[in-house]
Design a protein around this nucleic acid. Structure first.
Length: 821
RNA sequence: GGGCGAAUAGCUCAGCUGGUUAGAGCGCCAGUCUUACACACUGGAAGUCGGGGGUUCGAGUCCCUCUUCGCCCACCA
C-alpha cells in the first residue's frame, strides 16, 4: 500500500509506519480466520491469539532475556544474508536457494615484482561475482599446492582497486577447482570471512546496505570514484569491461550455480559483514534430537524424520535480529555514557550504572522468534502455574506444511523442551502442498492459485474438503488445474448431493401419521437385506477405524512403537465411507427396501425404516469429520438417536454385531443373481421393460432358501421371475451363469442367442481361464510354494483352483453344446 | 554436490507389514426420465504397474541401475 502511495517506511518514520501496519493487520487479519471457518475448521474461536498482544509480547521478551542470561543469545560479528531491498538481515532459512545460469570470470592478479626476478607472473582467480573483488584482502592457495608454494607470503596487486594484498596459504583453497587460487573477500562471503579471521585480515565492506558500490567501513580508496553508488549488478558489468580493457580478464565461462534470494521479495541476497543477534542452537537442538530418538515426537509421513534429524544435526546459529520496524523489539538497552548494556524484562528509566540516558536496540526479532513459543505463550507461559498451560500442555498433534518444518516445527519442539521440559506435541503430520499442473506452488505472483472461498461458493465446503481428504494419499501434494476446477470438485459436490437425496428418500419414506422408527432392531424380524446392510456397515466402520488408526493408549504420553498403527490414511477412510453410503446403502439396500417401505404391512415398514435410519445415521457419523456441514444438517432432520445436541458432538459409530453372517451371505448370493440377470439383459439387448424368466439350481439348502425367500427381490431389482430349474434345457436357448457358491442360474433366451457369436465369446472366456488355471496349477505344483508359503495363502489358492475348475467344466460343457463337435 | 519424492487405465490418483484375475473418481462405449437423485441409474471396454537387472515359492510392492519430472538441503570460489 505504501509503495502504491510512493512512500517508503523511512519516509514515514518508525512510529507512523507501525501505526499504518497495525491498521493494515486490523483490517486484513480476519481473512484467514474467515477462510478457516468457511472451510469448516472446528476450533475454539474464542481462543484465537496474536503474537503482538501484550501477553504474548511479554512471553517473547521473557524468552529472549532468559536465553540471554543463559548465554544462549549473543551478539555476533559475521557475514550474514542481507536483503538490499528490505534492508535487513535474514536467517539462513529465509535466504532461499535458486539455481541460476551465471558466469565464472577468470581474472588475472599480477604478482608484485621483486627486484632481479625473471618474467612477470600473475595469479588467475575465478569468481562468479567480480564486483566483490574490490573487497579482496588476499588470494589464497592450498598449502600443499606445489604450483604456488614459492609465492606464499608475497603479494598481488588488485586490479582496478590498486591495492596490494598478500598471497596466503589456506586449506580452504581447493587445488582441483579452477586454477587453485581463490580470492578472499571476508566482508562479502561467509567462507572468506572464516579465512579472513584465521589470518587476521582486514574486512572492508565495499557495498552500501542498498547494494550499491561504496566504502562503508573505511576510506581506503578501493572503490574508484566512477563506481561509487553504482548498483552491484551494473558494477559487475563495468568492472568486467574495465578488466577486459586492462587485459586482466582471462576468460569467461558459463557457470550454473545457486544463488540465494530473499524469501519475501526475491531480491538476490548479499552476504554482508555485520553485527547481529544470534541464538546458540546446539544446546537447543540436542534435546530435540533426543526427544525424537526416544519416540516422544514423531513425524508423518516418516520420510520427513530424516530431514528433521539432518537439519538438527547440522544446525547453525540462528540470526534473530532484523533491521525492520514491525515486530518485537530486541529488549537490550545501552548506555552510551558508560558503556553499560543488558537485556531486561522491563524498560529501564535510566542507566542502572551511571544513571545516564539509555536507548533500546533498534532491531526487531525474527517473526519466528515469537512463533516458536506459540504452544506455550498462548497458554499463559511464562506463568507455569497457569491453568491453561497445566491443562493443555503438552499438546498432541500438529498438522502443518513441510515448508515450515525448520522455521516453525523444529523450533517449537526446541522451545517446548527448553522452556517447559517437554515436547509441545507428539505427532506432526506434514500434509502436502497445493500446486498447479506444472507442480509449481500456488502463489499470488504466478496467478495459479485457487481461492478456497470461491470453491466453497461454487461447490460447497464439504466438496472442497472431500476432494482434499479423499483424493490424496498421506502427505501427497495436490495438483489443481485452475482452468478446470469442475472436474476436480464436482465429485465431492455430487457425493454431497447423493447424501441429500438419500435423506430425502428416507424422510419421505417415513410417511405421514406413521410412528417414527423406534431405533430398536429386533433380529427376529430382519430380512436378509437388513442383515446384509448391517454387516456392510460393520465392515465399513472397521475399515474406517483401521484407516484412522487406533487411538493412543489411555494416559500414555507416546504412541505405540508400531508407527504403522498410527493410521492417518484419510483417503482410505473416506473411500470406505463413500463406498458404504453410495454403493451399498444407496445402490442396494435402499433399492431393495423400496417395496417394503411403500407396500408391505406395518411391521415390514417399521423394520425397514429402522434399519434405514440406523444405517444412514451411522453413515453421517462416519462422514461428519470430512463433510461436517451437510452431515450436520441432515442429521438434524432425520429421526436419529439423539445422543448429543449436535452431530459434531455425537458418538463415533460402534460396530453392532447385530447381523447374522449367514443371512448376509445369502443376500450377497441373491445380489449376484440379480447382477447376472442384468448382464444377460444388457448382453442380449433385452428391453429394460421386458419381464424375464430365470431358473436356479441352488448349490445348498441355504442357497435354495435364499432364492425361494428373495424371489420378490429378484423380480423387483432384476425384473425377472425366478422359477424352478427345468432339466435338459437346450444350450442354444439358455445363458447359464455360475454363482460363487456353485449355484447355477439359467436364463432362457430362446431365439435370442446368436449361436456363433456366443460360441466365440465362451471360447474366448475359456481360453482366458485356461491360462489363469495353468498358472495356478503350476504354482500349486511348485514344491517351494506349497512348503514355504503361509498355510492360509496355499489354502486360498487351492480353493481358487477348485472354483476355477468348476467354472472350466461349465464352460467346456457350454462350448460342447453350443459350438457343436 | 547430497538427500527425498513421483513415474500404475485416456486424465487425476489409491494401492499399509511382498500373497485373490491390480482399484477408485472423472472421461469413454451401450442402454435407461425405473415414483431420492440425469450432480443419477444399469451394463461394458480399457493397464506388458517408466526401462533393464536382481532377491524370492511368489514383486506394482524389496534391492541395484538407467531415464524423465519435481521438491528439499548445501560454504566448490
Amino acid at each position: 500500500q505504501l509503495a502504491d502511495e510512493g512512500v517508503t517506511r523511512q519516509d514515514l518514520g518508525r512510529e507512523k509506519f507501525i501505526e499504518r501496519t497495525a491498521e493494515f493487520v486490523e483490517k486484513t487479519g480476519g481473512t484467514i480466520l474467515r477462510q478457516l471457518r468457511a472451510m469448516g475448521a472446528s476450533a475454539d474461536w474464542s481462543r484465537t491469539a496474536y503474537t503482538l498482544t501484550p501477553e504474548l509480547s511479554a512471553a517473547v521478551r521473557e524468552a529472549f532475556v532468559r536465553l540471554y542470561e543463559d548465554g544462549l543469545i549473543y551478539r555476533g560479528h559475521r557475514v550474514i544474508h542481507w536483503c538490499p531491498r528490505c534492508l535487513t538481515s535474514l536467517s539462513d532459512e529465509e535466504a532461499e536457494h535458486a539455481e541460476e545460469d551465471g558466469k565464472l570470470y577468470h581474472i588475472s592478479y599480477p604478482v608484485e615484482e621483486r627486484a632481479g626476478e625473471g618474467p612477470r607472473r600473475a595469479l588467475t582467480v575465478a569468481t562468479t561475482r567480480p564486483e566483490t573483488m574490490l573487497g579482496d584482502v588476499a588470494v589464497a592457495v592450498n598449502p600443499d599446492d606445489d604450483r604456488y608454494r614459492d609465492l606464499v607470503g608475497r603479494f598481488v596487486l588488485l586490479p582496478i582497486a590498486g591495492t596490494r594484498i598478500p598471497i596466503i596459504a589456506d586449506e580452504y583453497a581447493d587445488p582441483a577447482f579452477g586454477t587453485g587460487v581463490v580470492k578472499i573477500t571476508p566482508a562479502h562471503d561467509a567462507n572468506d570471512f572464516e579465512v579472513g579471521k584465521r589470518h587476521g585480515l582486514p574486512m572492508p565492506v565495499i557495498m552500501t546496505p542498498e547494494g550499491t558500490m561504496g566504502e562503508v567501513t573505511d576510506a581506503s580508496g578501493r572503490v574508484p570514484v566512477e563506481l561509487r553508488e553504482v548498483d552491484r549488478f551494473e558494477a559487475r558489468k563495468r568492472i568486467v569491461a574495465m578488466l577486459e580493457a586492462q587485459g586482466r580478464l582471462v576468460k569467461v565461462e558459463p557457470h550454473r550455480h545457486s544463488v540465494r534470494h530473499c524469501y519475501r521479495c526475491d531480491t538476490v541476497v548479499e552476504p554482508r559483514l555485520s553485527d547481529q543477534w544470534f541464538v546458540r542452537m546446539k544446546p537447543l537442538a540436542d534435546p530435540a534430537l533426543v526427544a525424537f530418538r526416544e519416540g516422544r515426537v514423531r513425524l508423518l509421513p516418516e520420510r520427513w524424520e530424516a530431514v528433521y534429524v539432518n537439519w538438527l544435526e547440522g544446525i547453525r546459529d540462528w540470526n534473530i535480529s532484523r533491521q525492520l520496524w514491525w515486530g518485537h523489539r530486541v529488549p537490550v538497552f545501552y548506555c552510551d555514557a558508560c558503556g553499560w548494556k543488558d537485556a531486561l524484562r522491563e524498560d529501564p528509566a535510566r542507566c542502572p550504572q551511571c544513571r545516564g540516558v539509555v536507548r533500546q536496540d533498534d532491531d526487531v526479532l525474527d517473526t519466528w522468534f515469537s512463533s516458536w513459543l506459540w504452544p506455550i505463550s498462548t497458554l499463559g507461559w511464562p506463568d507455569e502455574q497457569s491453568r491453561d498451560l497445566r491443562t493443555f500442555f503438552p499438546g498432541d498433534f500438529l498438522a502443518t506444511a513441510p515448508e515450515i518444518l525448520f522455521f516453525w516445527v523444529a523450533r517449537m519442539i526446541m522451545s517446548g523442551l527448553h522452556f517447559m521440559g517437554d515436547v509441545p506435541f507428539h505427532t506432526v503430520y506434514l500434509h502436502g502442498t497445493a500446486r498447479d499442473m506444472q507442480h509449481r506452488k500456488m502463489s499470488k505472483s504466478l496467478g495459479n492459485g485457487i481461492d478456497p472461498l470461491a470453491i466453497v461458493q461454487l461447490y460447497g465446503a464439504d466438496a472442497l474438503r472431500w476432494t482434499i481428504v479423499a483424493g490424496l494419499g498421506m502427505g501427497a501434494d495436490a495438483m489443481f488445474d485452475h482452468n478446470d476446477i469442475e472436474k476436480t470438485f464436482a465429485p465431492g459436490r455430487n457425493f454431497a448431493t447423493k447424501l441429500w437425496n438419500i435423506s430425502r428418500f428416507l424422510l419421505s419414506s417415513l410417511g405421514e401419521g406413521e410412528p417414527l422408527p423406534s431405533g430398536e432392531l429386533s433380529p427376529a424380524r430382519l430380512t436378509r437385506a437388513d442383515h446384509w446392510i448391517l454387516a456392510r456397515l460393520d465392515a465399513a466402520i472397521a475399515e474406517c477405524d483401521a484407516a484412522l488408526g487406533p487411538p493412543r493408549p489411555e494416559g500414555s504420553g507416546r504412541w505405540e512403537p508400531s508407527r504403522r498403527a498410527l493410521g492417518l490414511r484419510l483417503n482410505e477412510y473416506a473411500e470406505s465411507a463413500r463406498r458404504f453410503v453410495w454403493n451399498e446403502l444407496a445402490d442396494w439396500y435402499l433399492e431393495a427396501a423400496k417395496p417394503r417401505l411403500s407396500g408391505g404391512d406395518a411391521d415390514d415398514r417399521e423394520v425397514a425404516r429402522s434399519v434405514l435410519v440406523h444405517a444412514f445415521d451411522a453413515a453421517l457419523r462416519l462422514l461428519h469429520p470430512i463433510m461436517p456441514f451437510i452431515t450436520e444438517t441432515l442429521w438434524q432432520r432425520i429421526p436419529a438417536p439423539r445422543d448429543a445436541d449436535f452431530l459434531a458432538r455425537a458418538q463415533w459409530p460402534l460396530r453392532g454385531e447385530r447381523h447374522a453372517a449367514n443371512a448376509a451371505r445369502e443376500f450377497d448370493l441373491v445380489r449376484e443373481a440379480i447382477v447376472a440377470v442384468r448382464q444377460v439383459r444388457s448382453d442380449y439387448k433385452i428391453a429394460p421393460g421386458t419381464r424375464m424368466a430365470a431358473s436356479v439350481r441352488p448349490a445348498s439348502p441355504s442357497a435354495r432358501a435364499a432364492f425361494d425367500g428373495e424371489r420378490g427381490l429378484v423380480g423387483w431389482l432384476a425384473r425377472a421371475d425366478l422359477t424352478a430349474a427345468a432339466e435338459g434345457t437346450d444350450a442354444t436357448a439358455v445363458a447359464p451363469v455360475l454363482l460363487s457358491d456353485g449355484s447355477e442360474l439359467l436364463v432362457p433366451l430362446a431365439g435370442l442367442i446368436d449361436v456363433a457369436k456366443e460360441c466365440a465369446r465362451v471360447r474366448g472366456e475359456l481360453a482366458g481361464l485356461e491360462k489363469q488355471l495353468a498358472a495356478l496349477e503350476a504354482r500349486l505344483a511348485n514344491e517351494g510354494f506349497v512348503s514355504r508359503a503361509p498355510a492360509n495363502v496355499v489354502e486360498a489358492e487351492r480353493q481358487k483352483l477348485s472354483d476355477w475348475k468348476a467354472r472350466r467344466e461349465q464352460l467346456v460343457a457350454r462350448v460342447r453344446s453350443l459350438c457343436g463337435a
